[in-house]
Nucleic acid binder design. Structure first.
Lengths: 99, 99
DNA sequence: TTCGTATTTCGTAAAATAACGAAACAAAAG
DNA sequence: CTTTTGTTTCGTTATTTTACGAAATACGAA
């Protein structure tokens, strides 16, 4: 009677992060925040991405829910930055997977 | 008139790979193949994973479509192995993202 | 307070995903 | 040829995702 495993925490967590990164719009945003080591506004992004404002907002929400970014109000804007702590976490999980 | 970008190849490619890895079952399989540096059979996997045979088969198909694994007939089994070439590719894309 | 700007939420529709059991398939064994 | 074994495909259902425009919200400026 071979036991069905329950997934290790690392596995579900990595899957969750991968899901958050499974769309080109979201990869673009993360790449921008990570590489330019900067923050950005929804308004900047909507100019350069091929989606509407509400759609972009949904993508930002998803990244936020996954813990990959965080938004800080800077009225009338909302400044989105990388969530460094979780970014390091997913980096580590990814490293564990590939190395 | 700020131009909407078209996504760079690297971005769509990484998103595609991330999507393929966005489920715990699929992460489990990849992790097993990559870390134990081995191949495996659908029958082995179904014993240890909490999904039915047909569902598992779908996940294997998805990994195959994404180019992350490849199946080789070894009757009456099908032996699934990592697609080393694409594995290296996603490793590199991931490295580019995080480093 | 009213106006204007930046952004999100709501409502909706179309498409994709995940899951299962039943049926089909492929190939070795009898 | 028929059976058995391992696996996949099909048909179906429930859920999630992606997308959009319209309406709502938040808040500083006038």
């Amino acid at each position: 009677m071979d036991k069905k495993i329950v997934f290790e925490e690392d596995i579900t967590e990595l899957a969750r992060f991968a899901k958050a990164m499974s769309h080109p719009v979201r990869i673009h945003i993360l790449k921008k925040l990570a590489h330019m080591n900067t923050c950005c506004y929804s308004g900047d992004l909507v100019e350069e991405l091929p989606v509407g404002r509400s759609t972009l907002s949904q993508h930002l929400k998803e990244l936020k829910n996954a813990g990959l970014i965080q938004g800080e109000t800077e009225a009338p804007y909302i400044k989105y930055c990388l969530n460094r702590e979780n970014w390091e976490k997913v980096r580590q999980l990814s490293k564990d997977l590939f190395d």
